[in-house]
Nucleic acid binder design. Structure first.
Lengths: 330, 330
DNA sequence: CTGTTAGCGCATTCAA
DNA sequence: TTGAATGCGCTAACAG
């Protein structure tokens, strides 16, 4: 099924069919109907590949994610998919696996496929390289503070949200609050740690460095971190994990030791993964709408592509109080 | 950067460059080197779109999933991505949202983009339609028993695995075993229910239909189902949920009522989601390697595309005993 | 072994 | 308003 066959069957020229398909010019009503009939009869679908070649646009945007199976970024991918679908764009997902070299490969792959833009979800690529890419195609990037032409970065106020999370614990009367941080190289992790510190400081509480232990954002590291914490025999009545997955790990470690949540220690996470509503007890956490993040990123990309001014709405973060935190006892 | 510019810079014809790029024919070593230098100098990347047009192959395969953010199928997508990456294929993910009409749209979108094949992860489209599509392009489909040219279906023995899961409970001494089933229209759900029934029957235990309640594979429905079950005031000491997500919901409902797992009721799920290792207590479940499923599907697709004979390795399912099941008390 | 010549299916000039 | 001609970047005969 080609456009030419449609044209022949409708008794018009290929250009006319193309015009009708794209609304590029006015066409006599009778011809339009003939063409539409032909399209229906033949079950014709325009070849997006050919169209891409001709127009120089592929109608697809690349998305570099770290792991397509990440419970947090999944939701973001969904948001991207939804925002792009309307205007006929398709996302092309590639995984960088937290690896700078791999990420560069991904970018090359996307460039080779002539995507019309790339959305980078918190990548490892350095800022300079990224600005270089922005010279060639529109870029939307999350979790970074970058300014540049052809580039928009979407940020969430991790620092403030971490402050709020820690503050929630403080308000509940906790003074010995441990923190499981994310990888030191990760900007989000740094900001969350900073927010934790600021909250303690503003509350005139000491920051005990021994109460801060580092994980890698996965469940296993949360479990490990908590065991480390326990080995120090330091006293603490509350725990702030830099993401929900690590909170899950910590929660299991606590369970293993017979330490109750929230009676013995209050636990708060960060992300509000869908499953956090179903942990036992349901996890108090910071909601960042991963879905909205994706949606906003996709919309920004569309604006970038079409040359419009981009406006990025604020993405609010807020503490969702559930049952894993409670007033300090005694 | 086009192939033509590379040719000019290397002092050869475009065809020669193309041959070197594709290994289509032997080329004099000196020219090869000149071309390779030119490619490096220019930072040239072949235009996959143009190549697709010329060859009639897009080097991409469509993947129809129900929800790109599904914790189970995520892993599968990852497997697909990995298996396709080697030979230079890229997956194009689209979500059907458990909706037959939407799925048809997805298929149209994929056809319009001229994907070289489509992998359908347990779709809602009926078999006949699917066989129709298989006339036009290679199809790999999971969770169904279909035979046909240009089509391979990958199945897991859900019935046997559900039997094993139920049997595990029976061996632990449970005789009153409830089941939270998946949607009646879903083949996997049907098979799991059948396996549950067969296990009871083989153990000469009565099948109490009131102990079977239907969910939709999401957490919330598991919670709801359990509450329904509790309202009947029927006695049961074990529960088999047709997937882990519903098991999570059920587990929370139990927690809310102060019913202990596994002391008061043993709980077993199905899927072995990554997070099932971190629930409290860690969930006994049936492992189906979602990742392997994807890998196998991707490999089958590659074989189909290249016209090779397809061989689908068996995908074993097995019960992973963790801490949510125990011997029946008293 | 290599260059020349046609398309792949479509959008887009340019004329009419 | 419409058709004919041209080209997007590449591959694949076809000659040599």
């Amino acid at each position: 099924m080609t456009l030419e066959e449609v044209a022949r069957r409708a008794g018009v020229s290929p250009s006319t069919v193309s015009r009708i398909l794209n609304g590029t010019a006015r066409v006599r009503e009778s011809k339009r109907q003939a063409v539409e009939r032909a399209i229906a009869d033949l079950g014709y679908h325009p070849n997006v590949i050919a169209r891409g070649l001709a127009r120089g646009r592929s109608m697809s945007v690349g998305v570099i994610t770290q792991d397509i199976a990440s419970p947090f970024y999944n939701e973001t991918l969904k948001g991207i998919e939804d925002s792009l679908a309307g205007p006929g764009y398709a996302p092309l997902f590639v995984s960088g696996h937290w690896n700078e070299a791999k990420e560069a490969e991904c970018m090359a792959l996307l460039v080779a496929r002539r995507v019309d833009g790339v959305i980078v979800l918190t990548g490892m690529i350095d800022d300079a390289t990224l600005l270089g890419y922005a010279l060639r195609l529109p870029l939307v990037i999350t979790g970074r503070n970058l300014r540049g032409p052809n580039l928009v970065s979407i940020q969430l106020d991790n620092e403030q949200a971490a402050f709020d999370a820690t503050w929630h614990l403080i308000e509940l009367g906790h003074t010995r609050i441990a923190h499981i941080a994310g990888p030191e190289s990760n900007v989000d992790a740094q900001e969350r740690l900073a927010g934790y510190r600021r909250a303690l400081t503003e509350a005139r509480l000491p920051v005990d460095e021994r109460l801060i232990v580092i994980g890698d954002f996965h469940e296993a590291s949360g479990l490990l971190a908590l065991n480390q914490l326990l080995e120090t025999r330091l006293h603490f009545t509350a725990l702030f994990a830099a993401n929900d997955q690590m909170a899950y790990g910590a929660r299991l470690a606590l369970y293993r030791k017979g330490i109750r949540v929230p009676e013995d220690v209050s636990l708060i996470g960060f992300d509000d993964l869908p499953s956090s509503l179903y942990t036992t007890p349901p996890l108090t956490t910071v909601r960042q709408s991963a879905y909205d993040l994706g949606k906003v990123a996709g919309e920004a990309m569309l604006q970038l592509i079409s040359g419009q001014a981009v406006s990025v709405p604020a993405l609010p973060l807020r503490v969702i109080v559930r049952e894993s935190t409670m007033l300090r006892r005694g």
